[in-house]
Amino acid sequence: MSDLRQEFIAFSVEAEVLRFGEFTTKAGRLSPYFFNAGLFHDGATLGQLAQFYAQTLLDSGVEFDMLFGPAYKGITLASATSVALAGKGRNTSFAYNRKEAKDHGEGGTIVGAKLAGKVVIVDDVISAGTSVRESVDMIRAAGAEPVAVLIALDRMERSGKDGALSAHSAVQQVAQEFGIPVISIANLDDLFGYLSGATADPRLSQHKEAVAAYRSRYGV
């Protein structure tokens, strides 16, 4: 596990954005952990989160011209990442969409810079891939090219229901469907490595077995 990934997991736990216990996912599964990027809701934590996004994107080597944030969480994430990139010497424009078209003023559903060139979609996680598909459609309709999806945490979790689980995760399906990479700051393997590591809080290491069982059942 890279230092950046380890730092991100530790940061998420400390900010209580990554929590352990029993949580019901959108798929109706009982998960031993839950990641909610919406809880990065103050200036300090959002600024630090944006640094992780920006550095991960730069380290990926993906060529890009601008960022796109799907409503709603992606709006904050894309704009904050753009600020962080500028601080690293890479001034990058960004845009985002409205859920409903505006019929006055500038109108339309896209706010911010004009969609053009190579575009990176910035979001928190990929569950069903719906927001990514909608984003890809909007970007291509504008004549621009989606080149990657940048997320915080890849759950590395197979889609579908018990007895009919997909061979691939939602992240893998998105990558295959659109032929673009999905870049994550960290993933489930990094999370498990953190719980297994010597630096893990003893209060957290007690969740290791539950996470391992969940990964064995649903992981790719």
Results as ranks from 00 to 15, higher is better:
residue 39 L to Q: 11
residue 10 A to M: 06
residue 164 A to P: 10
residue 10 A to V: 09
residue 135 S to C: 14
residue 141 A to Y: 08
residue 104 H to K: 02
residue 36 N to T: 00
residue 130 T to M: 11
residue 11 F to W: 13
residue 139 I to L: 02
residue 43 G to K: 09
residue 27 A to N: 13
residue 61 G to V: 02
residue 111 V to R: 06
residue 146 P to N: 12
residue 206 Q to K: 15
residue 211 V to K: 07
residue 3 D to Q: 10
residue 13 V to H: 08
residue 8 F to E: 05
residue 152 A to F: 07
residue 76 T to G: 14
residue 142 A to H: 06
residue 102 K to G: 10
residue 30 L to T: 15
residue 202 P to V: 14
residue 169 S to P: 09
residue 66 M to Q: 15
residue 207 H to N: 13
residue 82 S to K: 10
residue 22 E to K: 05
residue 30 L to C: 11
residue 219 G to M: 03
residue 144 A to P: 06
residue 92 T to W: 07
residue 36 N to R: 02
residue 195 L to P: 12
residue 14 E to I: 00
residue 76 T to Q: 09
residue 106 E to F: 04
residue 139 I to G: 04
residue 174 V to I: 14
residue 58 L to S: 00
residue 121 I to N: 09
residue 185 I to Q: 02
residue 198 A to D: 15
residue 149 V to H: 12
residue 2 S to K: 07
residue 43 G to F: 10
residue 109 T to E: 12
residue 90 R to Y: 09
residue 207 H to D: 11
residue 16 E to Q: 15
residue 86 A to F: 05
residue 133 R to T: 07
residue 143 G to E: 08
residue 27 A to Y: 01
residue 158 R to Y: 09
residue 178 F to R: 06
residue 149 V to C: 12
residue 48 Q to C: 03
residue 128 A to T: 15
residue 216 S to L: 14
residue 100 E to F: 08
residue 17 V to G: 02
residue 17 V to W: 05
residue 45 T to Q: 12
residue 122 V to W: 13
residue 117 G to S: 07
residue 22 E to W: 00
residue 177 E to G: 05
residue 68 F to E: 12
residue 177 E to W: 04
residue 46 L to N: 10
residue 3 D to N: 04
residue 148 A to G: 08
residue 90 R to G: 04
residue 25 T to F: 01
residue 65 D to N: 11
residue 88 K to Y: 00
residue 97 N to K: 04
residue 121 I to Y: 12
residue 157 E to R: 12
residue 65 D to R: 07
residue 180 I to C: 14
residue 111 V to L: 08
residue 106 E to Y: 03
residue 200 A to P: 06
residue 217 R to P: 02
residue 34 F to H: 00
residue 193 G to V: 01
residue 59 D to V: 00
residue 9 I to N: 02
residue 158 R to I: 08
residue 59 D to T: 00
residue 141 A to C: 02
residue 189 D to Q: 02
residue 140 R to P: 08
residue 44 A to V: 15
residue 171 V to S: 07
residue 188 L to G: 03
residue 64 F to V: 05
residue 106 E to H: 11
residue 79 S to F: 07
residue 47 G to F: 00
residue 96 Y to L: 04
residue 54 A to V: 07
residue 57 L to I: 03
residue 205 S to A: 15
residue 19 R to N: 02
residue 176 Q to W: 09
residue 134 E to A: 04
residue 20 F to H: 13
residue 18 L to A: 06
residue 120 V to F: 11
residue 109 T to M: 14
residue 56 T to F: 10
residue 183 I to E: 08
residue 7 E to R: 14
residue 175 A to R: 05
residue 102 K to T: 12
residue 167 A to P: 11
residue 116 A to L: 03
residue 96 Y to R: 04
residue 159 S to M: 14
residue 162 D to L: 13
residue 109 T to Q: 13
residue 184 S to H: 13
residue 106 E to L: 14
residue 99 K to L: 12
residue 152 A to W: 09
residue 188 L to K: 09
residue 163 G to V: 06
residue 176 Q to K: 15
residue 217 R to I: 00
residue 79 S to P: 02
residue 194 Y to L: 01
residue 191 L to Q: 01
residue 96 Y to G: 04
residue 217 R to W: 04
residue 152 A to S: 15
residue 200 A to R: 07
residue 160 G to Y: 09
residue 96 Y to Q: 05
residue 93 S to H: 11
residue 71 A to S: 15
residue 79 S to M: 12
residue 41 H to Q: 14
residue 201 D to M: 07
residue 98 R to D: 10
residue 81 T to S: 13
residue 59 D to H: 01
